[in-house]
Nucleic acid binder design. Structure first.
Lengths: 142, 142
DNA sequence: CCTTGACCTTCCCATCATGGGAAGCCCTAT
DNA sequence: ATAGGGCTTCCCATGATGGGAAGGTCAAGG
């Protein structure tokens, strides 16, 4: 199998396959006499593993570890679990931050007329001097 | 005010101030005779605006638009609101995706022993051939 | 006056994961 | 044999940010 077919079969672009190889995430592929990379079923398996892990949002660094654990028949599932829990925690952290921003923005948008008048609490908040987001009840125009 | 002071006062690093200027997000600062950038209160105001918008997760492209609206006394608040709503929608989209991943991972982690045994549903899922992520109610141990 | 140290300037490089594209070689089908 | 598509490597770009080098500037103190 050439890289193009492997790409189609795994869902990882040829470009990325070469990149993963270049940074050592996956082992260098066998080469044909003319220098073409050649892939087998096992390589496809690895590529699909990486693909899924990326889709889950694991960083390449973590995927390297995951791959190592995957290949290691002697692994402790505890290690895998720890890695997953760490990733979950990060996701939750990011979700919470984005949630907070979305909430703030929703509140601001709710009080914005959204018509042809220029005044807008969203801009007011963005240009406010203080730290708090749309909290003070000062009704003097900024 | 030199760039260092402006950075401290606005919370935007000197590096980023120069970058924002270089890409046209903010107007080029005045220069002293010796070529130093010089900032006034108004520039600080702009920098703080950008800072807050970035913290909200607005892309620089959108911030450019926001800055334009901010400066434009004739703006329609509708435009600002539209931009904000668009951003909220994107945030919600991303949050939903991350939430889905976190949920999947939580379920997988819940069924992972997390001890010294090697078998682990997390790795099993990552290396699974099919598309669905731990969904089928097959109680055959995978 | 001169030195020192802190600041400023520009320019280049790195990140993370990905894509675009050029120049040139290889393979297969007509 | 030639055309086309696929392959190779190499360079560049993204978005937002930081690091650092080489060199100019400024203010304070001996």
């Amino acid at each position: 199998m050439n890289i193009g077919e492997a790409a189609k079969a795994s869902g990882v672009s040829a470009k990325m396959i070469r990149y993963y190889e270049s940074v050592g995430l996956i082992d260098p592929a066998m080469r044909s006499e003319s220098g073409y990379r050649v892939y087998g079923e096992n390589d496809l398996h690895v590529l699909r593993f990486v693909k899924r892990a990326r889709k889950m949002g694991f960083s390449m660094e973590r995927i390297e570890t995951l791959l190592g654990l995957w290949r290691d028949g002697e692994r402790n599932s505890a290690e895998v679990k720890k890695l997953a829990l760490g990733h979950i925690a990060e996701l939750e952290q990011q979700i919470a931050e984005m949630q907070a921003v979305a909430d703030t923005l929703r509140k601001l948008a709710a009080t914005c007329h959204g018509d042809n008048r220029p005044d807008c609490p969203i801009l007011d908040d963005l240009s406010a001097e203080h730290e708090a987001p749309a909290r003070a009840p000062k009704r003097r125009r900024a």
